[in-house]
Design a binder for these strands. Structure first.
Length: 457
DNA sequence: GCTGGAAGGACCC
DNA sequence: CGCCAGGGTCCTTCCAAC
């Protein structure tokens, strides 16, 4: 490699890759990002995963090309109408702008890893990640300095940081700690909405007015009480709606808080240069699509909204526009009505080294069916639709579903139906099998009390 | 034209 | 040596039956 003089892309292909791992994240300031990219590239370049990923990126680029053709064919008249659509869309979004609510988004810092450090303080001084060789769910801040991060497979983490300690996740323990945080959240908002084990949205408007204190003061109290209760740190975002609060909670992570003043000027300034990727709901693909049209920030979204209108669905337009204006929900959503289930589906799936033996696979479906059935039994629910999920050895995903005439939950029925659907796919080489039940209803059981229905948090 | 099921995807933690 | 999760939600598109 040294002697020749190939184009720069050929000699440093890792510079071009920009995977999910390499974007900014707290704790990554002093890293050699180039080195990290290179190690990740070297570790994955020959894998099926990487091939699939490249293929997806290519397809998205082709999609961009098609959309650009479509855009080129838009007449002036049509474009005028898109501008009008945008004006309407902005007007109706502005009607949903509420500045008088106080939302706090609480985000536990490196939650799983911090819980492990709490239980074993020796982990505090070493690079450590919770997860397995297959996948990391959280890395502590020391490990992050090496480029180790969540959603990265452990073996890559090990290459970035050979001393990395991998700790097996203990979800029961995280759930316990999560419950402790919830006790704190309830003080400030009995109806708080939880977003997983490690984060929550609190509408603190009422608490603020009753106690005559500011959102920032409340955030201080929350952080102090969470620390007292759990011995863990968290970060808070204080803003006038849920989305802004969430973005703010990331600003001064870890163990910090950020307050966004509830006035239009401050919000506009905040949002102007905000990368679209920061909008919760905009992931890698949408980012790539938007970037393809030269749209990188929320400010760009507003400026080029007519292009978005011409090229994406109305729903996408209104979502992007609303978010980019710094507008989002400022009130709690309605809770599921009594008797209504809070969950829509229940599933279990497992990854394994690729297999094609039909009997082995059928046996695995059987055991999945039992697992799933047990999970359903513990919530006294049954379901109408069975969906089998297959991931082929090349990472292609297939789902096959069947809706029945009457709901089931027993392992034999689930197994029978799932097996039948799986058989139709043979021959296949699979790396993952999963079963999901949806169309759920509580089991009308004579003696059993219907537990686990309604009420999400 | 609407509705409901099936399949595929994007996204979140 | 090879190793890239598992639990969800929601949206879009297609197609068939009303």
């Amino acid at each position: 490699m040294e002697g020749e003089n190939p184009p720069i892309q050929d000699i440093q292909p890792w510079k071009a890759i920009d995977t999910v791992y390499t974007n900014e994240k707290a704790g990554m300031d002093s890293v050699d990002k180039d080195l990290i990219k290179r190690v990740i590239y070297e570790a994955s370049k020959d894998s099926n995963f990487f091939k699939k990923d490249e293929e997806k990126r290519k397809q998205t680029n082709e999609r961009i090309a098609r959309l650009k053709e479509k855009l080129a064919k838009v007449t002036e008249d049509e474009m005028k109408r898109y501008h009008a659509t945008v004006r309407d869309s902005i007007r109706s979004a502005e009607r949903e702008r509420h500045l008088s609510r106080i939302w706090i988004h609480v985000d536990m810092d490196a939650f799983f890893a911090s819980v492990e450090e709490l239980d074993d303080p020796s982990l505090k001084s070493v690079p450590m990640a919770v997860g397995s060789i297959g996948m990391i769910s959280t890395a502590n801040y020391i490990a992050r300095r090496f480029g180790v991060r969540s959603a990265m497979p452990g073996f890559i983490g090990k290459q970035l940081c050979p001393q990395l300690a991998l700790v097996k996740p203990n979800f029961r323990r995280y759930k316990e700690k999560s419950e402790e945080t919830k006790e704190v959240f309830r003080i400030f908002d009995p109806d708080f909405e939880s977003g997983g084990l490690d984060e929550a949205y609190l509408d603190c408007t009422a608490f603020a007015s009753v106690h005559g204190i500011s959102g920032e003061e409340i955030a201080e109290q929350i952080r102090n009480l969470v620390m007292e209760k759990t011995k863990l740190t968290c970060s808070c975002g204080v803003a006038c709606n849920k989305m802004l609060a969430k973005i703010c909670s990331d600003k001064n992570k870890p163990n910090g808080q950020f307050f966004l003043s509830p006035n239009i000027a401050a919000i506009k300034a905040f949002v102007k240069d905000l990368p679209v990727r920061k909008i919760p709901g905009v992931g890698c693909v949408t980012e790539q699509l938007l970037n393809g049209f030269g749209i990188n920030t929320c400010g760009d979204v507003i400026k080029n909204a007519h292009v978005i209108a011409a090229v994406f669905t109305p729903l996408t337009l209104s979502f992007l526009l609303t978010s980019s204006l710094g507008i989002s929900t400022a009130f709690h959503g309605k809770k599921p009505a009594p008797g209504e289930l809070s969950r829509k589906g229940i599933s279990c799936e497992h990854t394994f080294t690729a297999k094609e033996d039909e009997n082995t696979l059928l046996q695995m479906v059987g055991s999945l069916a039992h697992e799933l059935s047990a999970a359903m039994a513990s919530e006294s629910i049954e379901g109408l639709t069975v969906t089998v999920k297959l991931k082929l050895s090349d990472f292609t995903v297939r789902t096959r579903s069947l809706t029945l005439l009457s709901p089931i939950s027993d392992p034999e029925s689930i197994s029978r139906i799932a097996s039948k659907m799986l058989r139709k796919e043979f021959p296949v080489k699979l790396r993952l099998l999963g079963i999901r039940m949806s169309g759920l209803s509580p089991i009308a059981n004579a003696n059993g009390k219907p537990k686990g229905n309604s009420k999400g948090s």
